[in-house]
Design a protein around this nucleic acid. Sequence first.
RNA 1: GGUCGGGUGGCCGAGUGGCUAGGCAGAGCUCUGCAAAAGCUUCCACAGCGGUUCGAAUCCGCUCUCGACCUCCA
Length: 501
Amino acid sequence: MALKIYNSLTRQKEVFEPLNAPYVGMYVCGPTVSGESHLGHARPFITFDVLYRYLLHLGYKVRYVRNITDAGHFEEEGKAAEDKITSKAILEKLEPMELVQKYTHLYHWAMDQFNNLPPSIEPTATGHIIEQIEMIKKIMTDGFAYEANGSVYFDVIKYNEVYSKKNQPYGILSGRNLEDQLDTTRELDNQDEKKNKVDFALWKKAPVEHIMRWQSPWGEGFPGWHIECSAMATKYLGKKFDIHGGGMDLQFPHHECEIAQSTVCNHEMPARYWVHNNMITINGRKMGKSYNNVVKLSELFDGSHPILTQAYSPMTVRFFILQSQYRGTLDFSNEALQASEKALRRLMDAYEWLKAQSFTSEKKSTDTSLDQQLKTWVNELPEFMEDDLNTAKVVANLFEMVPVINSLKDKHISADAVSGATWQLVKAQLTLFIEQVLGIKVESGANKKQLNGVIHLLIDIRKEAKAKKDFATSDKIRNQLLEMGIQIKDEKDGEVSFTFS
RNA sequence: GGUCGGGUGGCCGAGUGGCUAGGCAGAGCUCUGCAAAAGCUUCCACAGCGGUUCGAAUCCGCUCUCGACCUCCA
């Protein structure tokens, strides 16, 4: 079976074939570091992390480029709306790069918490102003952009005329036609500078109060909204690369504009597979800045947001996201996260126990249908992944195996019901899919030697109390530990284990 | 208004023309000093109305309804 992925460009699932196997180039639109990341941002980064991981698992050599947008005109979140502050006031408040630095650090911290692998290259927009200017110059030379009053605009109408004939009209990705656009585009500032209202800025002249500004052939200014991705993708992945990813809300206009710019410059469609993740919703509505309904990642991790009744660990959030397929919306609520938290703990408890067991392959199975069933569940895992990354089904199969593992543990099934070879296979595949592919790591509440020693001491004291039928003491130990988030479990064999919540 | 995508059980979420994922919550049982955990069993479903079909939650039509994009947005 081959990896199939849904291509927004063709609107169907397609078999993934790299342009230059075994190399794969993948570009994913990264964050704008003008504010703290929220749950909605987490979805693409986790989704494409899983795609990256799976491609690596398949043996591809992947160059994963994910940019950081640190240029443009932005002010610190929440403060932007206050007023149009003068340059002096801005200077007194915050240096733009100070802001960029702050939120870049926070973003990296969150990505690390999620156990996302770092991209191969993480270019910044401000680090590629020269490349962007060069690209704009090229587009102008070819006659698809024009200067107006110190700004440069892309000539969408002309592009559409020329490239419609080459079967690549403007709107090809998002399925829009230009006539509709002409009717509906709203009025923007400096609209009169543009030849047509559908034209978009490649370079913007900087007003006096604008702090982020660079020299260009057209005066001091800053790059337009879409050119950075075209410039950086071209620089690091070439004129044509394999995968371009991002959130669905970037499909138009961002990715559409990228296609137009890159196509004019490089004479071909930049990416072969366009992959878009759907939105996270809250009460059925997209989580987004403009809706004022975001839950920031830090609020999620410390439980400080009013709709949350508790803190949720990064792995719980990751698991919550992976329980759905990336192309559907995912509705967020405290209740849904609570469900994920419990589910993840059950899965990981079973998995960690299994991981600690060793099996010998000589043992034959006495329950061949169960043995076969386990093999089937395990063998389906790659099939589900290869069907457009259906992590929901992968997770479902993992849970099918949990009762079997727990039954082995609690001796509800005999030790040789399943053959040693099958257990070895299950163990290996679970490790592969849980840790390598889904990127879920074991979150142990505490690895401190001393703490573990103290807990074992309490467990011993409790055992002695129980032996003397001093249940008041044994319950006190159990209950008070539970209050601290340490749960004691009396196992079937008389042993006592504990977990951290 | 234009374009597009949804409506699955208390909640989150897969899915295929017939054998009706998975998780959480609920109920019962087993185990247990009591719990917890675990196991077993179980309840609850495909927005509505027509149509196609031997058979549709799955295909078609209509209605209602929610949302996304069209503007910075993951």
